[in-house]
Design a protein around this nucleic acid. Structure first.
Lengths: 228, 228
DNA sequence: ATAAAATGATAGTAATACTATTAAATTTGC
DNA sequence: GCAAATTTAATAGTATTACTATCATTTTAT
């Protein structure tokens, strides 16, 4: 897999950047160091000035790649969900039984990312932490409808769609496959956040228990007739 | 109930404000108009200057009541969850059967707020919209741990705790009552958000279907042995 | 070697998030 | 009803942020 990975590139909607950061060394450093910076200081304290300094360049150079810091976060978010989709597909190809496939999907989508797969210059472990800590910020904005039209949420939508399909293959009569899929994806990030910051709001303290919790939910509702 | 309501006051941790807005006419107008302003323009475009102008006063007056706009949002959030707890308690007192009580709780916590109960100067319908559109912003910040220590999330925690207790009364063996409670609360706001802005990520388009979806989830998992 | 493109450095603007000061109005105590 | 205390209004000012514009320098492509 390692080899495969180095030759692959996550495709990002060109509208989220001014100039493709993948197209230059500076661009790649911006992504790499931007992830490190947001991971350390949080998105609120992240500025293009800091990022410029960090990569040994300056503010104006960063603006040549990204319109503003919100677009930068959108870029990371698109990358993350695109990468999750890739992981989901890769890891469920082998499972021919729908239940096995769904279980595998649940693992991929709810377990914390603990191994940096060194996908190019992206530290996926740090990026996963960013998603846990900032997950709602790409869409909780007044511009969400316009940005949706411009396609910035497509990677996330594709992932939900794929996951919902796997749910449908286990129980085609369940009428809330998409809601369940989006609840699990969002809820998983939220439970990881609670585990770190508001532990009294969760029972998931052991490694793997978030996956356990969501597997219980999904399995129960798909095997039950309670939803009618 | 109307009468009862007018004599009640939601208690807010004094640390979230500089001066209690309930203690003066200006303070009440700040809360009232602040809700209207955030509802219309979104929290990102909300400024104390705009709010000061709107109430016929100015920026510096607002600062005498709230330290900054984040604290203002925390105030609204505390008010909202305090009010939800009040509604939860009031509406579940009558139900002696644990399952009835849990069902009632699910309704209260997942249905959109559609009736302004005219609880003092707070428009609960608008406040509910704000919570749907900004729900994660009070806690998705680098200061979450400090703010947690200062007790700003107590109302939310109390609500989750109460809800988790009701879950425990239906099935005391279920090991994820808190996670389920926090998932339903957060997930409900999220599904309402998706319904409004990213409808392809949800199956909940009819009134009541979000409640229906979560009731299915909760009921299934509590009646199942899948979670073990 | 030259043109074109990318980057670096500097400066500047508008808006925001505050703080400080003082004057005016209102409330309160007596 | 008057003085004192408190609250509010008005103004000014600062630091930071989020940009935009300009131009010099370096790198790259042919």
């Amino acid at each position: 897999m390692e080899r495969l990975i180095r030759n692959l590139k996550i495709t990002i909607n060109p509208k989220v950047y001014v100039k493709d950061p993948e197209s230059s060394d500076l661009g790649k450093r911006l992504v790499e160091q931007g992830i490190a910076l947001i991971d350390q200081q949080g998105f609120e304290h992240f500025t293009f000035k800091k990022l410029g300094d960090l990569v040994g360049s300056n503010e104006s150079s960063v603006y040549r790649y990204f319109e503003n810091k919100h677009k930068f976060l959108l870029y990371l978010s698109c990358w993350y969900w695109g990468w999750m989709e890739y992981r989901l597909v890769l890891n469920t190809l082998g499972a021919s039984d729908p239940e096995d496939r769904l279980n595998k999907a649940l693992e991929i989508l709810t377990q914390p990312v603990e191994l940096d797969m060194a996908f190019a210059h992206v530290d996926e472990v740090a990026l996963n932490r960013i998603m846990v800590n900032e997950h709602a910020k790409p869409f909780l904005t007044k511009a969400v409808d316009r940005e949706n039209k411009e396609g910035y949420f497509e990677p996330y939508k594709r992932l939900v769609e794929r996951f919902a399909e796997m749910i449908g293959e286990v129980n085609g009569d369940y009428p809330f496959a998409r809601s369940l899929a989006s609840t699990v994806l969002e809820g998983s990030l939220h439970q990881h956040f609670l585990e770190n910051h508001l532990p009294s709001l969760t029972n998931c303290k052991q490694p793997g228990s978030i996956t356990h919790f969501f597997r219980g939910l999904v399995t129960s509702v798909l095997n039950s007739s309670e939803y009618v």
